[in-house]
Write a protein that binds this DNA or RNA. Structure first.
Length: 768
DNA sequence: AGCACGCCGACT
DNA sequence: GTCGGCGTGCTC
């Protein structure tokens, strides 16, 4: 028998199946989806069995080891892998890596084993540990020649050692054996009496009561104490204890709940901000758990998991948490709990969509408009697309929830791909916040040069007086978007991206917003040594400064990437603001995400224009979502107001805020239709990288011609200069299509990859 | 991606 | 003759 194996190496040149003989003793239990260790070109590697076949003329080596008792990849996961491979041109190894937790992968360690210590050069002796093993580090490459010589002389040998990243955590507990036959037991009467009151005791407790390790050891030796090993779950959120409150649904909420419960289907729940979507989630979860089905609840960000957990935990007994921020050990435990069907509810971020849930009845995707459901780095995927797949696979109900669905999801709902259910009002008869606009052009003619309009200042003042809270959005990081020398006009730029560096006052740094480049801000100009350096434009740090000057008696907090850097920084800030340790919370777009503050009665957007000037066809949609979510933070428990300051108030993303989502959608979908953007045409970006300018352009052009011959519209290729690597030229094009045969395109791309071009296909729209 | 091998040039 | 750098070719 032959196993067809994908080897854990992420490169297009080895992106195919390799055949291995299955040793007779493995034949009975080896299955598709299991992890194996295989010899591969002078090394040992982890592999995944994708297929088992009778014969192959390719195989020449045997599988060395099988790591699993049960397949770690089931049929469902293979389908997700398949979908990933059809979405963008990644390697199979990338796909496996994406759907599996990193803990089930293996770390490879190259070891040099000493065979004859006496013949090893003095200078190398310190490299070996006391067992005569030298673990090679990256920096040890310089010794490769010496090692080779030693190997030839049979003084050392090398091997690949494999290490797991996480294991089950085991604690030992001690149990008193009444049937022991230890005659000197009377020396330990104290200990015995201790066990009269305690059944199972762990070592730390025994030590704490004054029993020494030596004492314990002796008693174990004479079988007075029995050791019981127990696996324990590392629980990252064990400190959450919340009280159960009775949830009373409004008539509108009840109607929606019953609609969703009545039929297994895929729903889009559109409910205005503060309409109580979470209460519906809780009722749904309770109902499914009662039926014995499992529920998966996705939220866009790690920080929202805690909030959701606080809300949901009183109603569900066994909850697993799954996200990328867990430690190896924690994630391993949560993964095993899910696999062993030991939980009712899984709360997680986008990667949780791949968790191995059996008997799944319901998937909820909260704030489904959020871009965070799309992973854009090495492996592109849209968790919502996979949620649809997962729901179909399990015949589970899917519920996408948002106050502001993406234009595409709304379009699909209106075209019956999702069943649309709506919540149009807030409970407790609370009105939606009243929206007011301020034209900053007029503010200037009135003689107010501040970034705060007079109306806004008055409104903040009155909130401070009434001990109510204010949320302010200013969506630009740092202190100033760039700095300039007034003597010679020099602007510090990023050496790789060639764009102006953003100035961060609190760290005294200049940072590039495209790559990770940063440098210290100098007191004098690097070009002419003048000290007349001026900040140009405003960022959130500057706004904070002005705010503190203007309202010197108010307690003001700032929330952006910089201020929440510390662990729990975000959590602490939210908690403090909620407990009214601050009057005003100023933040970038992160303050608009899913927060529920009782005492906020004013939310304001300063310089709304900042969010509109992004070069993407979804810019207006993203801006509207941000604004609507932001204004929706106000007046959740007491009537509230919202204020929008901008220069271009006539933009529809701003104008429709005072109307409703449907007004925005109508305008947005009209523009999409006119410009042939998604959802009317699907869109994708293809990037080409190569060492030669002209050749790379030509190869890109060939692909363009090919796509055009298939009647697809192609924009570009145009050169990309931003964030370009040294000596690598980059071209980019956008293809618009209705139905694209990607497998044929990917084959062409793969051919280019083999010829040392680097080509990537990124979806820009969601295909459903 | 990661490994060995082979060629080349520099340095005893 | 040795050592290290880099390009090339292969992986069941």
């Amino acid at each position: 028998m032959i196993a067809r194996v994908i080897v854990d190496l992420k490169h297009h040149q080895v992106n195919r199946l390799f055949d291995y003989f299955i040793p007779a003793e493995m034949e009975s239990f080896l299955q598709r989806g299991m992890r194996v260790i295989v010899p591969f070109n002078e090394m040992k590697r982890l592999g995944f069995v994708v297929e088992i076949v009778e014969e192959s003329n390719q195989a020449s080596k045997e599988i060395e080891d099988v790591l699993d008792v049960e397949p770690i990849i089931d049929d469902e996961l293979f389908e997700h892998i398949d979908l990933l491979m059809k979405t963008s041109n990644i390697t199979l190894s990338h796909a496996f890596e994406t759907v599996l937790p990193s803990e089930i992968f293996i770390q490879y360690e190259k070891q040099v084993i000493c065979l004859d210590e006496s013949r090893i050069d003095q200078s190398l002796k310190s490299k070996f540990n006391k067992n005569g093993v030298w673990v090679l580090k990256k920096s040890d490459i310089q010794y490769q020649y010496q090692i080779k010589k030693l190997k030839e002389a049979k003084i050392v040998e090398t091997r690949t050692a494999l290490k797991t990243k996480a294991k089950a955590k085991v604690i030992k507990t001690y149990h008193f054996n009444v049937n022991h036959r230890y005659h000197k037991i009377n020396n330990n009467l104290e200990l015995i009496s201790f066990f009269n009151n305690h059944d199972e005791v762990n070592k730390a407790d025994l030590n704490a009561y004054g029993f020494s390790d030596a004492q314990i050891k002796t008693l174990i030796k004479h079988e007075v104490l029995q050791v019981i090993e127990k696996e324990v779950i590392r629980n990252p959120y064990s400190h959450i204890i919340e009280n159960k409150k009775d949830i009373k649904l409004t008539d509108e909420q009840n109607k929606v709940l019953n609609q969703i419960l009545s039929k297994q289907d895929q729903y889009l729940l559109k409910g205005v901000t503060g309409s109580g979507k979470t209460e519906i989630y809780i009722k749904l979860i309770e109902s499914y758990v009662m039926k014995g089905a499992k529920v998966l609840l996705l939220v866009p960000e790690i920080t929202l998991i805690l909030q959701m957990l606080k809300r949901v935990s009183p109603y569900v007994e066994k909850i697993a948490i799954y996200h990328s921020g867990l430690s190896h050990g924690e994630r391993y435990d949560q993964y095993e709990r899910i696999r062993n069907q030991n939980v009712h509810l899984i709360i997680g971020t986008r990667s949780a969509i791949f968790s191995p849930i059996q008997n799944l009845g319901l998937i909820i995707v909260d704030e489904c408009h959020d871009q965070a459901y799309i992973q854009e780095d090495s492996t592109y995927y849209d968790a919502i697309t996979h949620a649809i797949k997962k729901a179909s696979y399990h015949q589970a109900t899917l519920l996408l929830g948002s106050a502001t669905p993406s234009v595409e999801h709304m379009f699909y709902a209106l075209n019956k791909q999702f069943r649309l259910v709506e919540l149009k009002s807030r409970p407790l008869n609370l009105p939606m916040p009243k929206i007011e606009y301020v034209d900053m052009k007029q503010e200037l003619t009135k003689g107010n040069t501040s970034i705060f309009s007079e109306v806004l200042m008055q409104k903040i003042e009155s909130r401070l007086k009434n001990k109510e809270q204010v949320l302010l959005l200013f969506n630009r990081k740092g202190y100033a978007p760039y700095i300039m020398c007034r003597q010679c006009g020099h602007v510090p730029t990023c050496p790789t991206c060639q764009i102006a560096l953003t100035y961060f006052k609190s760290d005294g740094l200049l940072k590039c917003s495209y790559c990770h480049y940063k440098e210290a801000k100098q007191l004098s100009c690097q070009s002419c040594q003048s000290t007349a350096i001026k900040e140009v434009g405003v960022g959130i740090e500057y706004v904070e400064e002005v705010l503190k000057k203007t309202f010197s008696n108010a307690k003001i907090a700032r929330m952006d990437k910089q201020t929440i850097k510390t662990k729990n920084g975000h959590e602490t800030l939210i908690k403090d603001f909620d407990e009214q340790a601050y009057d005003i919370l100023l933040g970038t777009q992160m303050i608009a995400k899913g927060l529920d503050f009782k005492n906020v009665t004013l939310s304001a957007i300063i310089m709304a224009d900042l969010s509109l000037n992004i070069p993407s066809y979804t810019a207006s949609e993203q801006a509207y979502i941000l604004f609507a979510q932001m204004t929706g933070r106000s007046g959740r428990f007491y009537p509230g107001e919202a204020l929008v300051q901008a220069y271009h108030l006539d933009h529809f993303a701003i104008k429709s805020l005072s109307k409703n989502y449907d007004a925005f959608y109508k305008e947005a979908i009209h523009i999409r239709k006119l410009a042939n953007y998604a959802p009317f045409k699907q869109m994708a970006k293809i990037t080409f990288e190569g060492e030669q300018y002209l050749k790379t352009y030509q190869e890109a052009f060939k692909i363009k011609k090919y796509l055009e011959s298939q009647d697809h519209e192609v924009l570009g290729p145009y050169e990309q200069t931003l964030n370009r690597k040294v000596d690598i030229y980059k071209f980019e094009m956008v293809v618009k299509y209705i139905k694209l045969d990607k497998s044929e395109l990917f084959i062409k791309i793969t051919e280019l990859m083999q010829k040392k071009w680097f080509v990537r296909f990124f979806p820009m729209s969601r295909e459903i």
